[in-house]
């Protein structure tokens, strides 16, 4: 039996301990905001926070989540909207929107670690998150707005 917290609620899991967190979130808990894009840690669509750190849920097995606190996109702005979510809307970042949960979760972890990231730090942090629609320049712009730094 694995015990963990997801978006503030205590959860118990007694399925296959090898199952990636991604499928637990999506198939079992119905937190479908976390997306599947590659299943191999290559695209960032599945990014959630595990104890506050940006983590690829598609390559994180349930056994490694024992005792951890998971935050998904649904939990990020649950109490009040995250500045990144506001900035995302201000810049109309999304096209199809599919990658954006992962992008925002990745960016949120970046801003926690580096509240005023440089261009190079943004690139380094966001490199693992693919957007096939090509919204990168607006993603960068939105992060800069949320962080209050100049482009």
């Amino acid at each position: 039996m694995i015990q963990l917290k997801v978006n503030g609620s205590a959860r118990r899991f007694d399925g296959d301990p090898e199952m990636p967190l991604l499928w637990y979130l999506r198939d079992v808990l119905d937190y479908t905001g976390t997306k599947f894009g590659c299943g191999a840690g290559l695209c960032g669509a599945c990014t959630v926070h595990v104890n506050g750190e940006a983590t690829r849920s598609c390559v994180t097995s349930m056994q490694d989540t024992a005792g951890k606190e998971i935050t998904t996109i649904e939990g990020l702005g649950a109490r009040s909207e995250h500045p990144l979510q506001a900035a995302w809307k201000q810049c109309n970042v999304s096209q199809c929107g599919y990658c954006q949960s992962g992008q925002i979760m990745q960016a949120a972890a970046l801003l926690k670690a580096k509240p005023k990231p440089s261009n190079a730090e943004i690139d380094a942090a966001m490199q693992g998150n693919i957007c096939r629609c090509g919204t990168y320049q607006r993603i960068r712009q939105a992060i800069q707005i949320a962080a209050g730094v100049k482009a």
């Binding site: 479908t32 976390t34 997306k35 702005g77 109309n92 970042v93 999304s94 929107g97 949960s101």
Partner: peptide, 21 residues
Amino acid sequence: MPTIDQADHTRGAGKFGIDAK
């Protein structure tokens, strides 16, 4: 004009084919 889906996409609330049940 902003599109109707922008806000949903910042909350992971958009429903895609992969989300259908």
